[in-house]
């Protein structure tokens, strides 16, 4: 198995190649929002590092969101077309799940039970989820199991629900990760009880294709694959105009064109 995984939902793009033994080779951009220009170069670098050609790839995986709409589209389109042209299946990986996976080891070593990836969606909004660090059935390794729905939360709402969840285990701590820390760190400090939370260090705070690749490898082994038409973005939000159309608040000028 040779899986290509790409991550374009955050500020910095990255590409990784993972094989069945779990060896990972990666390339990451140091330029912000350079996904469209830089993605093919990153893929090519990751493949070179891995010492394989694109024709040896068996799967292509994308971090499908939530995150930057534009970033999501670049990643998903790239993977869909690679899948179609190389005739290999796709794998969809939740961006929040991949962020939890990335933070898991550090969360456990810091003594936290929960991992909370938070993506800044502006104006107090976030895309977030809550994961619990648990041992897999065979006890061989720990994994992050979702315990609260991945969705759009107001930051305050997320923290209140999280506190309720944490009340189930006295003394449990939450390990926050993602650019939500940069945007809402002060709010988190205000709302969360002292010593009930830890912030991820910047070196693993942001999305990276490595954790996308690790999840993709497990999904591939489990046969959890998709055709390119089935690989869809997870925006977690309708387009604004569509929200207004559904709510019946689209501008009258558009709905009743005859009036001036």
């Amino acid at each position: 198995m040779k899986i290509l995984a790409i991550e374009t939902t955050g500020k910095y793009g990255s590409a990784s190649v993972i094989d069945e033994t779990g060896r990972i080779f990666s390339a990451a951009s140091s330029e912000e929002m350079n996904h469209l220009r830089g993605m093919i170069t990153l893929i090519d670098e990751a493949l070179r590092e891995a010492g394989i050609t694109k024709d040896e790839l068996t799967h292509a995986a994308a971090s499908v969101g939530p995150g930057s709409f534009t970033g999501i589209r670049i990643g998903v389109t790239t993977v869909r077309i690679m899948s179609q042209m190389l005739d290999i299946p796709c794998i969809a990986v939740s961006t929040l799940g991949a962020m939890a996976e990335r933070a898991l080891g550090r969360a456990i070593s810091s003594g936290a039970l929960y991992v909370v990836p938070v993506i800044n969606a502006r104006r107090h909004q976030t895309y977030a989820g809550v994961y619990e660090a648990v041992f897999t059935a065979d006890g061989s390794r720990q994994s992050a199991i979702p315990v609260m729905e991945e969705k759009q939360y107001m930051i305050e709402e997320l923290l209140e629900e999280l506190k309720q969840k944490m009340a189930e285990h006295s003394g449990a701590a939450a390990f926050f990760t993602g650019d939500g820390i940069d945007a809402y760190g002060d709010i988190i400090k205000d709302i969360m009880p002292e010593e009930s939370y830890v912030f991820a260090e910047e070196d693993l705070r942001y999305q990276h294709a490595e954790s996308v690749a690790r999840i993709a490898l497990r999904k591939a082994a489990a046969g959890n694959i998709l055709t390119y038409s089935e690989l869809m973005p997870e925006y977690m939000r309708l387009a604004e105009a569509e929200q207004r159309l559904r709510a019946g608040t689209l501008s009258d000028r558009i709905r009743k064109p005859v009036q001036i």
Partner: peptide, 17 residues
């Protein structure tokens, strides 16, 4: 821009593949 980048991303992925 959002529309253009779908075509460009697709074209690049195909060209590379």
């Amino acid at each position: 821009v959002g529309a253009l980048l779908i075509g460009v991303a697709a074209a690049k992925a195909m060209a590379y593949a």
